[in-house]
Design a protein around this nucleic acid. Structure first.
Lengths: 148, 148
DNA sequence: GCCCTTCCTGATAATGGTTCTCACATGGCG
DNA sequence: CGCCATGTGAGAACCATTATCAGGAAGGGC
């Protein structure tokens, strides 16, 4: 696996797709988020960074990044889709903090034992989603200290 | 646990909410689906059953059924949300056939070992989603016999 | 370095699922 | 039986997302 994808390297984030100045700025802004974000927020972040891009362009860049595996969709919130930057190439899933939106990669907990049950009944499993929700350490302490 | 919720019993499907003629028809139609469905399809099914209900009413009934735990959201398809009737009260997840939309309940594969990793780092896990995707036995055979 | 093709960009309109509004009907409890 | 909270219906409103289309830039080949 030679394709290293680090936070700073936004070049290869689009896979084989063409990379423009706007897309570089969009990928860079997405990578700088430490938590989940909406397309609207990403658009604002890109604009604030001094590289204005149209909303449609941001949507297209997000689609390209998801296709390339650099971005993952983390459910939806208030009717808009949430995304999170993903610097990993291996198979894994995510923990999402329901308070601040922080995202953390987790190992896939599904083994042959979990899939074997349905497979034994003639089912073919081609994919799966696993997402954990809860509080990150920071938000946990913040909530414990304040009145809910 | 006295609250038995079977396929035929659509009375208690709404929990404590009020039950009208339309809601009974909606719950009944939803329970008759053997697979995932969109709100639009449910609306059509209710109308076909001879109990016309407004689209907004179906949306409200679906929301109430989800709140009561009788209905579960199974991701989204082509921009519209998918739901499936759920006659179980215990903790479980779902397998969704990507070809016909059939839904099958599965046991929760997440044990303490899977959650312990993040818990040990100060995270609090309050909930999780697990959904398997693939082909049901029927669709598997149908595809094996025909040219994709 | 230059050209040429392909793909990206941007502003706006269009799309379509979902929710809101409001007057009216109805369920269910006392 | 009567009251009042709650559900209903039709349509408009809402809003995230996608399509459109002319113009511009990326990038491979020469």
């Amino acid at each position: 696996m030679g394709r290293a994808r680090t936070t700073g390297e936004t070049k290869g984030a689009f896979g084989g797709a063409r990379v423009s100045r706007q897309r570089r700025a969009i990928a860079s802004a997405a990578a700088r988020f430490g938590s989940a974000f909406t397309v609207e927020r990403l658009h604002a972040a890109v604009t604030d960074a001094g590289e204005p891009a149209g909303l449609a362009t941001v949507y297209r860049a997000v689609t390209a990044l998801v296709d390339a595996g650099s971005l993952v969709g983390i459910g939806t919130r208030d009717g808009s889709a949430l995304y999170a930057w993903c610097g990993r190439d291996d198979h894994h899933h995510h923990f999402v903090c329901t308070r601040c939106g922080a995202v953390r990669g987790i190992e896939c907990p599904l083994g042959e034992s979990a899939l074997g049950a349905v497979r034994g009944e003639g089912y073919t499993v081609t994919g799966h989603d696993v997402t954990l929700y809860g509080l990150c350490p920071d938000c946990r302490h913040a909530r414990d200290g304040a009145t809910p």
